[in-house]
């Protein structure tokens, strides 16, 4: 195969764009897609202080790499989850990347700072690990961004992540979530930080290609808890669809944002008001936020067991 834009030999084909690219042209293509997403959705400005959530995987390090190259002011944020051999390796990868590129990095170890690793938290609260993990991450990301005075929080969600989340929300008719989906979410409360997903126009396969071609030293071990995750099943289904009909994921997700989301947003007349959590001050719709309730349950279970 030949590169679409130069006489060189292609290294990747992208069927939904009916194109193939050589290494250099693919890198230009991917970075341009990200830049256009950032500009088109007014995600970031060069004055923003951006906190980048970095797990150490290909997506988050690709995000950090591209934002750095585009000249944004970034600080990495890594959460140490305390999961077997997975977490120490992830941490070392992120620290290595930050050091190599001279970038500031904030590391939060949940076990050290909040007493429980993710597996312990899951056990003590009888949640599945990904649920305890997701709630902790979302909470800590917002709080860290707020406390550090960051104006935006950026995450490495790609098109596959976004389409899989949409599919899950549709299958369960999560109508409030459907109204709130999108690659850029403005802060709707003083205690919330704006969040953006600049990689949402790249598939997971394209992000992987970018990370490989740029020689990014990413962490490619899979978290043991991901095995059998529903999101992986959804991604697989969507890729079967994509194979039969190139561009399916893109039109599913972006078509929804354009034509479906407004209706779900308009239907939200219940007007749930955001309050501040009595215990921690973060936003919640109940008296105490979900994170504080989870932590409280974990502490009580741990105390009861040690008696």
């Amino acid at each position: 195969m030949k590169c679409k834009t130069c006489p060189g030999k292609a290294v990747i084909d992208i069927r939904r764009h009916n194109a193939a690219f050589c290494k250099d042209c693919f890198i230009v293509h991917a970075e341009r897609q990200i830049e256009r997403t950032i500009e088109g959705d007014k995600m970031l400005s060069k004055d923003d202080r951006v906190l980048v959530a970095v797990s150490g995987g290909k997506d988050s390090l690709t995000l950090w790499e591209v934002l750095r190259r585009l000249g944004y002011h970034t600080t990495g944020f890594h959460i140490v989850l305390g999961i077997d051999h997975y977490s120490p390796q992830a941490r070392a990868t992120v620290e290595g990347y930050a050091k190599k590129n001279g970038l500031p990095l904030i590391v939060t170890d949940v076990k050290e700072e909040y007493d429980f690793s993710i597996p312990e938290l899951a056990e003590y609260t009888r949640r599945v690990p990904c649920s305890a993990c997701g709630l902790s991450k979302r909470y800590l990301m917002n709080r860290t961004a707020l406390q550090g005075g960051f104006s935006v929080l950026a995450t490495g969600h790609n098109l596959d992540d976004a389409a899989a989340t949409l599919l899950g929300n549709l299958l369960h008719w999560q109508t409030p979530q459907l109204g709130r989906m999108g690659p850029a979410l403005e802060a709707t409360h003083p205690k919330l930080v704006k969040t953006v997903k600049p990689l949402v126009r790249l598939t997971e396969r394209e992000t992987l290609a970018y990370a490989m071609l740029r020689g990014i030293d990413y962490h490619d071990d899979e978290c043991p808890n991901a095995v059998g995750a529903t999101s992986l099943f959804y991604k697989d289904l969507l890729n079967q669809l994509e194979y039969a009909s190139p561009g399916a994921k893109q039109s599913f997700y972006f078509g929804f944002l354009k034509k479906g989301r407004p209706a779900f947003l308009a239907a939200q007349t219940d007007g749930v008001e955001l309050k501040e959590c009595e215990a921690c001050g973060q936003t919640t719709t109940t008296e105490t936020c979900a994170y504080c309730r989870m932590m409280d349950l974990a502490r009580r279970t741990a105390a009861a067991r040690s008696r």
Partner: peptide, 26 residues
């Protein structure tokens, strides 16, 4: 790319692009 020929004596690796649990990539 898909049209590339792999010869008998060569080794190739199939790298999975898909990863993650529900809140994985953050």
């Amino acid at each position: 790319t898909p049209d590339e020929l792999v010869r008998d004596e060569e080794t190739v690796e199939v790298v999975p692009a898909i990863s993650g649990g529900s809140a994985h990539e953050v």
